[in-house]
Amino acid sequence: MKKKFKKIAYIFYLITVVIILFEISYRYQIIDFYKPELKEYNSKNYNKNNNSILVFGDSFSANNQSYVKTLQDSLPNISFINNAVSGTGIIEANLIAKKRVIKAPKALIYQIYVGNDLMDIRKKSNASNYPFWKKVYYSISNNLISFRFLNYRLSQFKTIRDFRSKLDIPNPNYIKNDTIFSIDKYSDYEKQTLNGDQKLLKNSILVEGDRIKDFNKMLKKIETLLEICKVGDSIPVYLVVVPHCSQINSHYKNKYKKMGLSISQDSKYTIYNYPFIKGLKKKFSNKNIKIINLLPALRSNDRENNRQYLVNDFHFSGRGIQTTASEILKYIKK
């Protein structure tokens, strides 16, 4: 009995050591954990000198057909280095930047998504509608952030993708050709996330309740990103804020109603200068930092034959990508 106990204790000890070492390696990016994405989203000969514009963000940026490619095609004399990774937030952006940024860039783009960026700061492990296993995972990943990376990598295996409804990040290959809305086809990630934390959108967009602390923490971490990237007070910084589709108009709101998901009726939820934007503007009033609020452009361009978001997903359609690129170009070309 003692031998079995010692063996179990030894195995537990080894697992603990491995977890700690892996967490340290990830936090300090001893190796570049996201190097495959860097290679995938950038040409082999991308320019690493200070004439480059660095891009950080999540799945709205991390795609070979995202707005970053449109920017690159529009400005061939400038090198855009796409450091974005699907399913990540400002915490991971800072880790990636520490590993890669050696000298100040020509400019910095940090793409923010109001739909779940505060969830990336803190995953709500006590939400009543989440299953037990997800609560456990969220609780662990709030402290051991390397578990988020493991989850992300697992989601990329073909055999696991079929079960992505059990994972916690959207499929990075999100471009779809669906033309008809279907509750069954709509993003499993979105449905499960918002059903599990029904106040996530409201509290994030309006910066209310238990997301106030997360918002303030995000602001501090954005400041850290600016320091890591050595932008100072003279290098242009563009904080590109992607709204949730339900902020655009009733077309998208009705989809969520059909899925049984609650959307806030507060008037501040859909105004252009909503609390999330106001908070960013208040914090970053520097002349070199521009807040690019995409809500006005996406709303004005969204029509029945020109939808800015995908039919069965919360990401941009091709038209939404073009709108985003056009808005960013207005600032870069100034």
Rank of each mutant, 00 (worst) to 15 (best):
V311T: 15
K202F: 05
Y252M: 00
K185F: 05
E92H: 03
K44M: 03
L201I: 08
D178Q: 01
R319W: 12
V207T: 05
S204L: 11
K255P: 10
N45F: 04
V101F: 01
G232A: 10
K134T: 04
V85S: 03
V240D: 00
P105T: 12
G279K: 08
A297F: 15
D210V: 09
V136E: 06
L194E: 13
E208D: 01
A62I: 00
E327T: 12
D233E: 15
I291T: 12
I332E: 03
Y152H: 08
D266K: 10
L225H: 08
S74K: 02
K2N: 11
R122Y: 10
I91M: 13
I20L: 14
N83K: 00
Q198P: 07
N203L: 09
K124N: 15
P36R: 04
V18H: 03
T324Y: 00
I8G: 11
N126Y: 13
K199H: 13
V101L: 00
L14Q: 13
N249G: 02
D120C: 11
Q65I: 04
E40Y: 04
C229H: 04
L71Y: 01
K2P: 01
F314Q: 11
R211W: 08
L280I: 03
F149C: 09
K220P: 07
N51L: 05
I228T: 14
F132V: 15
Y67F: 15
P170L: 11
S182L: 04
Y272P: 08
C229G: 07
T193N: 11
S165R: 11
Q247K: 07
M1K: 12
N94D: 02
V101M: 03
Q198H: 09
N254S: 01
D197G: 06
I78C: 00
D58F: 13
S317T: 05
L226V: 14
N64Q: 14
Y41T: 01
I235A: 15
S79A: 03
H244C: 02
K220W: 10
V55R: 02
F163T: 11
I277R: 04
R319T: 12
S125K: 06
S234N: 15
I292A: 09
Q192Y: 13
Y113H: 08
K124V: 13
S66H: 03
G260I: 11
V207H: 09
Y189E: 06
D197W: 07
A93R: 03
N143H: 15
S267C: 07
R164D: 11
K99M: 04
S61N: 00
T88R: 12
G196N: 10
N249R: 10
L108S: 03
Q156M: 06
N173R: 07
C229R: 07
N151T: 02
Y331D: 08
G115D: 09
I271E: 13
D233H: 07
I31S: 01
